[in-house]
Every structure is written in structure tokens, then in C-alpha cells.
Design a protein around this nucleic acid. Structure first.
Lengths: 241, 241
DNA sequence: TAGTGGTCTAGACCACGGT
DNA sequence: CCGTGGTCTAGACCACTAA
């Protein structure tokens, strides 16, 4: 059963996207929506606050709730990754993904990686390097570290496809969230070879720790993305003091 | 008067940061906090949900609320911009900022920029190009477009310092939010000259539309940041289906 | 079964903006 | 003044987890 606030959220978002609530216009006030959906104000507020946090509307005490312009950015072509947290495979849903495995080792975590994965430096980890392809083109060079204890049974076969699918479908664990730092960098020799880049072409470096449902970090990775196939989109609101 | 949910939010965050609630441990359940702060569950939930959205805790029905590890990332040196939405000047609070003005023109918006600023193509806009310096070093090359009607009275003097301060302090308008797209790109000849980059050194390109309090876009800008002085940090949670 | 968080109600009072 | 959203209450029922 879908909760009421999500129903209100989806229907309102749909009306914004299809232009029924045009940019700059006021959307219905909370009490009207309460009437329409037979619910209380808190429920409407929850739905509307989701739209605020995603940059669809803004709200002002004493005035109302209004549709924001959406930056007027072009929708990128579908072969460009618009980053969402959900890992490589899902970001390019329509294209078949394959991987070239450069390294697949078992080793000890060591200080640095142990720190990121919140484990002891003596714990066993996988040390994996892959180039990921879609549309017959390399997209990124991934260097991934995962605790063996948490993610047992990884094989070459799995690495050729999606580790994330294995974790969710076979191990029945849920991938839940990620902390990330992203920056630009000149491409290394290896980047240039594996990602088919010229010397002056850079990469976008994403360093991340990914968490399971149970709060455990299961992946620390450093990924070099082709600069022309990866974009980061965001909407930020100022904290009100 | 600070609302109760913010008090609970700040105090709980503080206890997480100073280690009183260690990583992986359960923080007090909602009813205990209700007792302690003499408030209702909704109030606690609001505070805790803020901590969830910022990546400090996760919550599980039937289990409790737990402190997440925080990725173990190094705190970057203070001369590196860790991006927050608040514009260049505030991101480097301790360093004096100066600007080299490359262009300061009045012109018509044209189709593309009008679209981003949600105005008509015939409207007058400022067309500003600046290199921004801190610590005696160039940080970024900004190309900014702003509607004259919305932000009157911009002068060279203002451009040498902060446009944002002028808008908030002199015009008494509040800067509220921004939509952004970020990506890496090879540096152009101009980037290399102005940002003191070698040919193989890239830039991080941030294209953004910034909004005022009243929902009006007041700035469309494309900024080329030095790759080694800019980082994007984020935490993303999976939507639960 | 007991304890947790998720959702929801039907009110309430307040702050703010415009008339 | 009225209508808006911001906060808050004191309950309720449900879903989920672990013992």
C-alpha cells in the first residue's frame, strides 16, 4: 500500500512536469489538498517538502507554494551518465554493460582502506580493477575494495557483469547509500589506454564508500570516469539560519 | 526562538561528532527522546530524519537508529573549496578574495540565456567574466549572466569583491538555492592562461542557475574551476520503492 | 511478545505577507 | 484582517525485527 504522502507527491510532481502547474504559478495550498485527498495537513506538508528538497517548488510563509524554474538545462543524451547513487549498471539502464577485468586479487585491507571500510587492517578484502563498457565504449576505470567477510563468493563471472546485482539478487542484501567526493584530474597513462583518451583529456574522479541496508560499508572505490560521459546534477537549498 | 526539532537535531549531531554516540551504536529511540525533551514523536522524527538525509544515521523499522561511519575521508586542507551552494566568497571564508575582471558588458539575453533565466530574449543582462583569486592564486574563471532588471546598479567596484554580498547586503534580497550540472573538461587556452594551468591540466566545469528567495533565477553562470582546488561532496540515499 | 520506526489524524498556536 | 505555511501535540494503528 503506497502511503498517502507519496501519492500526493507523485501526482503533484506529475502536474508540474506536464505543465498543468506552470513555472512560477502557485500550487494548491495545504488545506485544499487536505480536502481533495481526505488527509491532514502534516501529510500534505510531507509531500510538498519532498518537492522542495528536489528543487521543484519553493514555499513561503504567508504566500504559498510556487513552481520553480528548473534551470533550463538540456536533458543529456541517454548515453551520458547523469549520476544517481545507484551504481554503474543502473545508471545506463538500456545499454548492455560488460567489463574488462584488469585485476582481481585477495589481500589485506591495510590502514587506509580499513579506515574507509570501518574494519581492521588485517581483514581480507577483494582488490578489483575493472574497465566498464557500454555502447562498445569504455566509460570508466574502477578500483574497488570490498571486505570478503561481507561479500563472499565473488567470481570472475560476476565481475564481468554487475557486482551490485549479485549482492542484491544472490546475497539478498540491500545497497542503501553512499558518501562521495568528486573532482577532476588529468588522465594517467593507464586512463588514456583503457578509456581511449588523449593526453589532454581528463577524468572525473569519484571516491566513494557505499553502505548496505545494515549500515555496514561494503565498498570503497575510486573511479575514473571519462570526462565526456559523466555529469553530476544537484539542487542545493540554503539553510535558513 | 529555535524550534524544538532543530535543538534535538543539533544536540544529537554534536553527540555523534564528539563520539558520545560511537559509530555503529544505537542512538536513543524516539520515545526516550520525547521524554527527555518533553515533545511528541513527530518532533523527534523530524530531527532524526534530518540526520538521515545528511548521512549521519540510518534508521530501521523494528530495530532502531544507528550512527553511520562517515566514509573516513580526509578533511581537505582549507584552501580547497569543498563545495556548498553559497557562492565563491563564502566557501573560502578566511581568505581575502579579489577578482580580475575580463569582461563587463551590457547586452541582450538571447534565446539560450533567456531560457535559463526564465526571461525574454530581449531583456537586458550583464555579461561578466572574472577570474577569482584567493591565497594569491587563481581559483576559477567565471562567466556570469544576470538580468539587469533584477540586480540593478552593479559596478566595477562590486565586481572586484562579491556580487553575492552586494545582493544580500545592499539590495536586501536573499539568495536561496541553485540548480547545477558539474563535469570535467580539458582546459582551454584561456583557462590555461588565467588559471595558471598546463595544457594537460583540466578544469571542473560547473553550470548553474541560482535563485532568489522569491523563486526568480538571478544568475546563470558557467565556471571553470582549477581541478586541484575544488571538490564536490555528497551523500545519497536510495529511494525505497 | 515487546519494542522499534512509519504513517496518519484532527486539532492547535504562531509567524508572516498582503489587503 | 485573512490566508498562507511552520511548528507541535497526544494520541492512533501498522509493519517490521528480534527474542
Amino acid at each position: 500500500m503506497e502511503p498517502k504522502y507519496k501519492i500526493i507527491y507523485y501526482q503533484t510532481k506529475e502536474k508540474i512536469l506536464n505543465g498543468e502547474y506552470p513555472i512560477g504559478s502557485a500550487i494548491p495550498d495545504e488545506l485544499s489538498v487536505c480536502d481533495q485527498f481526505h488527509c491532514s495537513r502534516m501529510t500534505v506538508k510531507k509531500a510538498y517538502d519532498m518537492l522542495v528538497s528536489e528543487g521543484f517548488i519553493y514555499r513561503r510563509q504567508g504566500q504559498g507554494s510556487f513552481v520553480l524554474p528548473r534551470g533550463g538545462f538540456q536533458v543529456p543524451p541517454e548515453n551520458i551518465i547523469k549520476r544517481s547513487f545507484q551504481g554503474f549498471t543502473r545508471a545506463l539502464e538500456k545499454a548492455p554493460i560488460r567489463s574488462k577485468i584488469l585485476r582481481f586479487d585477495l589481500t589485506f585491507a591495510g590502514e587506509d582502506i580499513a579506515h574507509h571500510l570501518n574494519i581492521s587492517p588485517q581483514e581480507a578484502i577483494y582488490d578489483i580493477e575493472r574497465v566498464r563498457f557500454a555502447y562498445d565504449q569504455p566509460y570508466c576505470l574502477e578500483h574497488t575494495y570490498m571486505p570478503v567477510a561481507l561479500i563472499p563468493g565473488i567470481t570472475q563471472e560476476i565481475l564481468h557483469h554487475s557486482i551490485y546485482n549479485y549482492i542484491e539478487r544472490e546475497l539478498k542484501m540491500r545497497i542503501d547509500a553512499a558518501h562521495r567526493i568528486s573532482s577532476a584530474a588529468p588522465s594517467t597513462k593507464k586512463d588514456q589506454e583503457e578509456l581511449w583518451l588523449e593526453e589532454v583529456e581528463p577524468v572525473l574522479v569519484v571516491e566513494q564508500v557505499v553502505y548496505l541496508d545494515n549500515g555496514k560499508p561494503f565498498e570503497y572505490s575510486i573511479t575514473h570516469h571519462r570526462y565526456d560521459l559523466y555529469q553530476i546534477c544537484d539542487y542545493t537549498t540554503r539553510d535558513r539560519d
